[in-house]
Design a protein around this nucleic acid. Sequence first.
RNA 1: GGCCCCUUCGUCUAAUCGGUGAGGACACCAGCCUUUCAAGCUGGCAGCAGGGGUUCAAAUCCCCUAGGGGUCACCA
Length: 480
Amino acid sequence: MSLLRPVRVRFAPSPTGELHIGGARTALFNYLVARASNGTFILRIDDTDLERSRPEYTDGLLNSLRWLGLDWDEGPYFQSQRLEEYNRAAARLLEEDKAYHCYCTPEELAAGREAARKAGKPYLYPGTCRDLSQEETRAYLAAGRSPVIRLRTPDRGETVVRDLIRGEVRFDNSNLDDFIIVKSNGLPTYNFASVVDDALMQISDVIRGEEHLSNTPRQQLCIEALGYEAPRFAHVPMILAPDRSKLSKRHGATSVEEFRGRGYLPEALLNYIALLGWSPGEKEIVSLSEMVSLFSLERVNKTAAIYDTNKLTWMNGHYLREAPLEQLTEKALPFFEAEGLLHAPVEGNELDYFQKIVDTVRDRVKTLAELAEASTYFYRDDFSYEPKGVEKHFRKEGTDELLRRAADLLRKLEPFELDSIEKAYRSLSEDLGISTGRLIHPTRLAISGKTMGPGLFEIIVLLGRNRTVERLERAARWIG
RNA sequence: GGCCCCUUCGUCUAAUCGGUGAGGACACCAGCCUUUCAAGCUGGCAGCAGGGGUUCAAAUCCCCUAGGGGUCACCA
């Protein structure tokens, strides 16, 4: 890393949609670079596209970032509020004759592109307005045309982009035309605004998605024209959908908010996306702070990654089991509310009960949504019995009687505790000359409606004597 | 189509300057544990896109082919 200037990085999304995992990873890598080098992480909203930008997307972006724990040091800055800066820069280029007004209409340009397409030739802006006379300019103005501003780019030579991940990438200038830097509505284009801002904000490292690599020579040209010092570039590989195409809405869950809504933990999502394009070394389970000390852009690979929810889900299960109980319970609450099991202020005995449930159920689920879903019978009596469980455990002759015996046993058992219940169950089955399983399986089905779940005796203790006995008797009646 | 980038198990990845039985994780399969389901533990399946070079030696360097992706807007 250069010692010449402090590390300042930026994440600059455009507010045209939710934060998806590709953007989240870009944000993460920026964050890691900043934190590792005692630098500054800046958030900038690139909202120069009036049509597509929406304030609510900005809110969503900030929310997602906060939820992930990727806190920024400066910003958010909004490009839409920095127009004077771009105007000033453009005026300077105009003055130095490094840029010029172009009065071609979108229709004329489209016609040119179409002609080139028909001829099978690549289209480049032909430089029609490159050297207009004053009369020509006056005529266009009189005709009411409002111009764009184009950068005068070299016809020969090459533009070299130095990329931390990919090395030197060379582009032949003959393939680059005089592109637009200011639109006819006075707003800068992306390439221009981002160069101006990166320079003004003294960004040392531009870390962004690979889709920007092809744009970089244009930015490089802007940088040179404006006499700026170029930042280091790092184009991180793309994250592709399972069908190898670019991430989009039609690929199921791709946004941070969606994963959040499905009950994924931020630490799991962060850990998972960090592994896309980067490897922390021997252990893959790493916290954000561990990532900070292990990360380096040099170790980011060049290959696009296809994301696979399997591993994320597994990882989420891991974090679910490792999380401190109080925190996990807090995070689970909205999901229990959504299932209609709990209502907001949960405290006292109710909280105690809630925590115990979370603790026993979390071992066998992978998301918070599953956690709540798998906990319903702790709160509701109106569950039905799993059909295949009924076939397997209720059908056998005498099962109703077995359940009544169990109910009788539990009704007067003292003390009513995990060990004593288990002991009682085992000796009852021994007395009856049956396997403990013969007693356990129907009991589980009777009190939870399910054939699988936490240890039976744990469920019984949580439900308590009354509800257990009631449910056993109800099942016995249902069978008989 | 032009330009640019990329190519290790199904997926994510590791393999210091070329010498490895190509390692790990998820998924999958099997076993153990066990009242169920998980978890956990153990084991298994599975990969250097293809072809040429260079070299004593190539996943690693070079070239070609194929494939994938990105970008070519008054979008970012």
